[in-house]
């Protein structure tokens, strides 16, 4: 009887599904408490390198999510992600500036949205990220560019009320196409 049951399981595969819903909040809390005790012990074995990897992965996921979802609000996503990237990898931002051969002042201006990043800044950032992510996870080269331009598009579209009246004065619409 047992033999028959085992062979059935092999054929069916254990992976067809799992129902692990808690039957009550109490069960969930009790399991969570026991799990947390074990996790806190295991967390002691997590290395600094693994923490950096986890944060880089988190950043990548957030950037990809931003690129895919239109967020029409006035927020500096590019510099927020860039700050997060630098602070994950470096203890001093000036070291990042040195590694991509720009001055700390220029980096600070970009991070504080006082200057737009130049083409050379973007290209160096692209190569830097490519190398940093090499042993962490897949990272698309174009990601920083996509974040940057996505933010530009979102900002422009969401602030039409501000710029449109003035810009429209400079646009002459000829009736080339009949209504």
């Amino acid at each position: 009887m047992i033999k028959k049951k085992r062979s059935f399981k092999v054929k069916e595969g254990a992976e067809y599904g799992v129902d692990s819903r808690y039957s009550s909040k109490k069960e969930r809390q009790a399991d969570g408490k026991a799990l947390m005790e074990d996790r806190l012990q295991r967390m002691k074995n997590v290395s600094t390198d693994q923490i950096i990897r986890a944060r880089l992965l988190q950043l990548k996921i957030k950037m990809e999510e931003y690129i895919q979802a239109p967020v029409y609000k006035n927020h500096n996503f590019f510099t927020e992600f860039l700050s997060s990237y630098i602070d994950t990898v470096y203890s001093k931002r000036s070291n990042f500036a040195k590694d991509i051969d720009i001055t700390p002042v220029r980096l600070s201006q970009v991070l504080n949205n006082h200057r737009e990043p130049k083409e050379e800044f973007m290209l160096r950032l692209m190569i830097h990220s490519e190398k940093t992510y090499e042993n962490v996870c897949q990272f698309q080269k174009k990601t920083w560019y996509q974040v940057y331009y996505h933010e530009k598009i979102c900002d422009t579209m969401s602030s039409q009320e501000e710029w449109r009246p003035n810009v429209e004065k400079h646009v002459n619409i000829r009736k080339l196409i009949k209504a």
């Binding site: 399981k9 693994q50 923490i51 988190q58 957030k62």
Partner: peptide, 22 residues
């Protein structure tokens, strides 16, 4: 990972023999 970075945890509670597989 998106939510909790290095603190991230995914759990499940399979019943019976399926646990060993996971």
């Amino acid at each position: 990972v998106r939510e909790y970075a290095e603190l991230a945890c995914v759990s499940l509670k399979p019943k019976g023999v399926t646990a060993q597989h996971y």
